[in-house]
Amino acid sequence: MNAHAHPHTPVPDPGNSTLGYYEIMETAVRELLVAKRVIGADEIRRMLEVMDSRTPALGAKVVARAWVDPEFRARLLEKGRAAVGEFGIDLFENTELIVLQNTDKVHNLIVCTLCSCYPREVLGLPPDWYKLKPYRARAVKEPRAVLAEFGTVIPDDVEVRVSDSTSMVRYLVLPQRPPNTENFGEEQLASLVTRDAMIGVVKANTPEAKERTR
């Protein structure tokens, strides 16, 4: 009982929840690797710092540049890894980046059916739904139904193209530039590009839609 004499439902403390099997295994392996001096605790902390520095704002910058600069767009579609490197965004290890351009005829969607491969270097950590089985299974089987659940209805005469990331390639969707943005600068354009638009589950925001969500 609390001091002021009526009961409160205890607030769950995330630090006190029971660890699952894999969490315990991860902790054990990590502690062993550190104890055996295979890796240092500081290297783990530094990697977390690297991950935390990656957010969808990076991808949005890349997309906005591609919208205003046709030569950059050509380089981005030709060799994604090298083109995002121009921004100082380096891809981890040997992963390649394929940038998928949405057009009036093609709508791209990305998924990793095996696990959760995701262009973390340009988008940061994936959303939970991207890692869960319903999205992973259904994106390749009934992509139009999945898209409709995100509010994205693709006309029948537009091809839906699903890219499944299984190994060394990461994908980034280059959404179509929204209408009525002719006078927009790069910064303003980038503010219309959301994480979900670069996964391909929605289109880039229109200036009107962005105004409404303020």
């Binding site: 390749v140 089987k141 029948d156 091809e159 839906v160 193209r161 699903v162 890219s163 299984t166 190994s167």
Partner: peptide, 22 residues
């Protein structure tokens, strides 16, 4: 083609999968 993967695929016959294979 998604119709190759799923014989009962309901969407457009042009819908397709792209996947990297060794």
């Amino acid at each position: 083609p998604l119709t190759e993967l799923w014989p009962k695929y309901a969407g457009s016959v042009d819908d397709g999968l792209r996947i990297e294979v060794f």
